[in-house]
Amino acid sequence: MKRFLLAAPLVAGLALSACATVGPQATAQLVDREWVVQNIAGQPVLAGSSATLMFGRDNRLTGDTSCNSYFADYTADQSTLTIGNAGMTKRACAPAVMNQEQRFLDVFNAVSHYRIDTAGALHLATPAGATITARAAPVTTYRCSDGSTVRASYPTSDTARVTANGQTIDMRIAVSASGARYVSDDWQWWTRGTTEGLLAPLAPGETLASAPGVTCTAR
């Protein structure tokens, strides 16, 4: 029986041991993309909330339950999916969101199969027939002035997931005079329209980057 292990927010990204790899028959469509959950056990996701899944090629599954962040190991082949014990942060949210989180966990803990339908939707299923349905968040690839590549997706209107230099960074929206600015504890991603972005490090204590960063242009 799988279980969730509570973890303090600062250590939510610590890995559980991984002892297997993604099966050779695992569809390339499953991995390395942000899946935004739309329906949990027959109920649509609450407006303004976000539950997500991201299957890495390193057998790491990460995302949000609606209220908390989680991490787990997984193995997959063409249709079967096994998710190991997971770690999770321990924030409290509004009762409706907590109820949705529990529905997510009830299905997540029992998932045994997956499929991606012809419309591109991901369906995770339990032996009893309960499902989680998700769609891939669009990803924009940028070429930056220092020669690096940045990939960005926006699971919700208030969040961004940026991958740069082999690191995936989850960010939240922040106040900006123009464009859309997202920050994590260490990084700032500032977009202007859909074609340009600026990635800059945040110094300790900063909420607005003083470093010039690198300018990135969408491919």
Rank of each mutant, 00 (worst) to 15 (best):
T133W: 00
A125E: 10
S50N: 14
T89I: 04
T75E: 03
I83Y: 00
P9S: 08
G147P: 15
W187F: 13
D186A: 14
I83D: 03
C144I: 02
E101Y: 00
Q167F: 06
F55T: 14
A18G: 03
A128L: 01
T149E: 13
I40P: 06
N59V: 04
I83S: 01
A18D: 09
A125W: 00
V111K: 03
F108W: 06
L16I: 01
E206N: 12
A203M: 13
G48A: 10
T52W: 05
A72E: 02
P204Q: 09
A96S: 10
T52Y: 13
P95R: 08
P155N: 07
F4S: 07
S145A: 08
A8Y: 03
S176F: 13
P95K: 08
E206M: 04
D77C: 14
T149K: 08
A130T: 09
V214I: 14
A96Y: 05
T82H: 08
Q29R: 15
A94N: 15
D64I: 01
G84T: 01
S210R: 12
E101K: 02
T140D: 06
I40Q: 04
D146A: 11
D106N: 11
V175G: 09
T207M: 13
G63Q: 06
R192S: 11
A211D: 14
N109I: 06
D117C: 08
V214H: 07
P9L: 05
Y182A: 11
V31Q: 01
L208V: 14
L30V: 13
D117H: 04
A119F: 09
L61F: 00
Q43R: 08
C93S: 09
A51P: 14
F4R: 05
K90Q: 12
P24C: 07
L208A: 14
V162I: 05
V22R: 10
V45S: 11
A86D: 10
S153Y: 02
T194V: 08
A121L: 13
S153V: 07
A211Q: 15
T217W: 05
Y74D: 05
A134N: 13
F104M: 07
T194I: 10
A72L: 06
L16C: 06
G147N: 12
L105D: 00
L5Q: 10
S148H: 15
M171S: 11
M98E: 11
P138C: 06
T27P: 15
R103W: 03
Y114R: 07
A136T: 10
A96M: 09
G87N: 03
L105H: 03
T118H: 05
G48Q: 11
R172C: 11
N85Q: 12
A177D: 15
G87D: 05
A137R: 00
E34G: 02
Q43P: 02
G147I: 14
F71D: 10
I116H: 13
P95A: 11
R91F: 07
A130I: 03
D58Y: 01
R60P: 09
T89C: 07
G23Y: 03
P44T: 05
I169H: 04
L199P: 10
L208T: 15
T159K: 02
L46W: 08
N99V: 11
G42L: 07
S69E: 04
A125M: 09
A41K: 03
C216I: 00
W187V: 12
Q38H: 06
G129K: 04
Q29C: 12
L202F: 06
V183K: 06
R60I: 04
